[in-house]
Amino acid sequence: MTFTSKLDPRTKLFLIACLSSSAVIMSHWTFLAVLFGISVLLLLLFGVNPWGMLKKCKLLLYMVLGIAILQSIFMPAGQAIITVGSLKLLSLGGLKMAGEFILRMLIIIASAGILSTSSSREIIQGLVQCKLPYEVALMASLGIRFLPVFAEEFRDTMIAIQLRGVDFKTLPFKQKIEVMGSLFQPVVAGAIIKSKALAMSIEMRGFRASPHRSSYLVLKCRIRDYVIMISCGILTALMMFCYFSI
């Protein structure tokens, strides 16, 4: 537990709101690179290993990379780098755009990493104390959790397949496709069954049974939280000012 991970979840929410909104608004790669540097620094401060994080969202990164490449191919701009006949395959502008897109996504992933240093319960409570209705906060947090649950389910399935003595990797291509196709329905249906069961559990524990909901966990902002929030706000405003005055 580092000093920073004990911060109030609202402070973290504010931090990442500043970070990701700046990343979305600013579309200049030098600014994005600076923002990216800041977010890596923040990750380190919060005790998250950026490298480990990258490894965890490998699949997402491949997707981002894929989109970036497509983007740079289909929206050529500026000087051509590689051409095939009259087709600009890679251009300086396209490359820049792809780079900006990747940086932006990385900043958003890093923001998620910062948030993950609080438990979902703290985050829900943070949102609730910012006057968001509890139901909305709970649903949002369960929704966010859906992705890792899905990934876990998929991993379990892969283990189960191998335990039946089947080597997925060396299956003939046709069978590979067949297995993959046949997995789709159970995995999706399984996720739906799970989420229905979750709704059952929530309902049966008195959710919405009484008009007033209390909270066992109560968050209190401390001085350092205010200091960090204010300085973060000022920094963001400064960067915006620089960006728009260029």
Partner: peptide
């Protein structure tokens, strides 16, 4: 429920135990 994996959904045991009474609006 028969399958505890589908019943438990909070990130800590304490939060799991707190969920019911919170819904009833009990004081802290």
């Amino acid at each position: 429920f028969q399958d505890p994996d589908t019943q438990i959904f909070m990130p800590s045991v304490e939060a799991e135990l707190a969920f019911g009474p919170e819904n009833l609006g009990l004081p802290r």
